[in-house]
Design a protein around this nucleic acid. Structure first.
Lengths: 195, 195
DNA sequence: CGCGGGTTTGATGATGCTCAAGCCCGGTGG
DNA sequence: CCACCGGGCTTGAGCATCATCAAACCCGCG
């Protein structure tokens, strides 16, 4: 159950057996089903979630009701609305479940207590943040400087599993293009490749 | 000299006099002049910089030589290439100085030592990261879902000082649009406003 | 005074969006 | 087990937004 989490931690900091045990005790495991919501716009994001198995996604709705995917989370990823989680303000995100999933939930209080009792975890979370920051920066630059096709190719290269496991219109939303455009890009890439 | 830095820290964690002194000792103050480079593409980013006064910016060059502004940093902001700083890999960013500036430099070794000797700083840096993450996420969503005009208006609202102090073509680059488009948007907003 | 970078303006064109319709496929109920 | 329904993917035609290219303009600075 905590296998994937412990591995994720292990890649960043080294915990003793006792610390691992202690660490686990702060999480609440939960199984979620496809189409279920982990967070709805307007609610406060009470916990960050670690994905042990399955796929989730966060997204926002704009003024015209359009969805904009902010993040996908496969096994080994964290997902939450950081802003709401940190500040206690209502969230502007939705998080829903794309495939039946098992997650580990960590509330803010639990997190604060966790980093107190296992100070190494402060470092783990900081490194997590840093990596997210780097990835986000890359994505932003890509979204500013690349064409739709280039963005799609870059996504396939960076996260092939996401492209495989997530419906196409959500990929399009994630890239900031319409489903129609993505469809046309794929057709063109396919025929091109076939020559 | 360390005034702005200490204030920034104070908004996140509380340091004793002694800790403040200790903290300062890890930074190297430096004054920089307009057009000077703090980091050039290909070099390793050896330090993160805290801006005491002035303005800096980071940007990337794409395949066709186009500039893409990643970040502006005014007084009280940090700037660096996190990826290069963390990993020691050559940077893909440039950081240059837009106005004569005073910065405080922190090397990676100094940072590691700092968080060891003043553990509260680990928390400070984590909170910094979190805030950057939130801001970046907002910017990304905005860049995906808003028109050029909306993005510009949002920027004026969020960071009016940046718009005032930075040349227009860099604002355009930051927003992912051409200088021409930004100029037209501004004209339209002006005439509109004048009716 | 003249140079030069930055901004403005105009004309044209490409990329990606909108709207609308058809298609494919998997799920559901009869 | 088959027929039907519906969502998602595809395709097409027309259109909006923004980019590109080119030229003129403005203004601070040498």
């Amino acid at each position: 159950m905590y296998q994937v989490l412990l591995e994720s931690i292990h890649t960043k900091v080294h915990l003793t057996e006792a610390e691992q045990q202690l660490c686990q005790s702060f999480f609440v495991p939960e199984t979620l089903h496809r189409r279920q919501f982990l967070l709805q716009e307007g609610d406060v994001c009470r916990h960050i979630a670690f994905v042990e198995s399955g796929v989730l996604r966060s997204y926002t709705l704009d003024a015209k009701g359009g969805e904009h995917v902010v993040q996908f989370a496969l096994e080994g990823w964290w997902i939450s609305d950081n802003y709401s989680f940190l500040t206690g303000e209502p969230s502007t995100f939705n998080i829903d479940v794309l495939e039946d999933s098992a997650v580990l939930l960590l509330t803010k209080d639990a997190m604060d207590e966790l980093v107190l009792q296992v100070p190494k975890m402060e470092r783990y979370f900081r490194l997590l943040m840093q990596n997210s920051l780097i990835a986000l920066q890359r994505r932003l630059v890509s979204s500013l400087s690349n064409t739709a096709e280039e963005k799609y190719l870059k996504l396939i290269q960076t996260y092939p599993t996401i492209v495989q496991r997530v419906p196409q219109h959500m990929i399009a939303s994630y890239l900031g293009i319409t489903p129609e455009t993505l469809s046309r890009i794929r057709r063109q890439l396919a025929t091109q490749h076939r020559l």
